[in-house]
Design a protein around this nucleic acid. Structure first.
Lengths: 146, 146
DNA sequence: TATTGTTATACTCTATAACTATA
DNA sequence: TATAGTTATAGAGTATAACAATA
């Protein structure tokens, strides 16, 4: 499987192949998005803000399974870069309501194109049908939460 | 996709679904193997040692894409637990040749059963054919190294 | 009481430079 | 000079406890 070194029982494990694939995709993401200085978590957060009006930090954290304390740094960074706005909720003054700034919205549009193209380019070793089925199988896996 | 919060463009990305799936599988691994105090990397290293006679740390590091400095702690820990042996190579005295101790070999046999069963149990949401195809597709993905 | 956001903190994983001993 | 193993170290990512403000 690798030059000279046999992988034994690892080759057949879903967990091992998921891990290697995830690492590989993240490397490509970081390299491709280096010019934009955007991390996977930052893109995920911006996408969820764009897709959900009046979403709060708690909502984002739960949807992405990020611990609330760890989200603070991410949103503060995005706010400091002028990509998102945080305003105290009218209905619940404990909550911060998140939204994209015009600049953040423009950047996200650009990122959507770049990232979708990258995701397809790296997975060009698959047919469209194989890609669709893989995404479908993975969702069936991680969306089960027993 | 998640309670109330839409995932937007993330849902269709291979990278996002790989990440969530990997995190999910690793959580299950850590919980299942907690009684043995075995991490995924430790199991991977032991498996490669068992599958390759006279393998060195460099060989393991390259095959698993672990940085050489980061492998040192892993093998020292396994040695301290009496699971592997490290002996200086006869042919090249810079190299450490790794092998399992009888105790390490017995433990690995047990781990192979536990981990294979876990891997199948967690992926029971798939048919055998779906599982085989997914493993095949993932290998095609991460084994390309351009 | 319970929840939101926050601070502080610790632990793991990962990455790089530099050293040693061998080749 | 190049490589194997090691040390030291720094940077991410992730986890929990505890607090203030608010519900």
């Amino acid at each position: 499987m690798q030059a000279g070194v046999a992988h034994g029982a690892l080759s057949g494990l879903v967990g091992y192949n998921l891990r290697r694939s995830d690492v590989y995709m993240r490397e490509q993401f970081l390299r491709t998005l280096a010019d934009w200085d955007i991390r996977p978590s930052q893109y995920s957060v911006m996408t969820l803000i764009a897709s959900n009006s009046a979403v709060t930090q708690s909502g984002i954290a739960e949807a992405l399974s990020i611990q609330r304390p760890n989200l603070v740094g991410i949103v503060l960074r995005l706010e400091k870069r002028g990509l998102i706005r945080r305003v105290v909720s009218e209905s619940d003054r404990r909550s911060q309501v998140l939204s994209l700034t015009p600049r953040g919205a423009r950047l996200l549009e650009e990122l959507n194109g770049v990232i979708a193209a990258m995701d397809r380019r790296i997975t060009a070793c698959w047919t469209d049908a194989e890609r669709d089925q893989l995404v479908s199988l993975l969702q069936r896996l991680w969306l089960q939460k027993p």
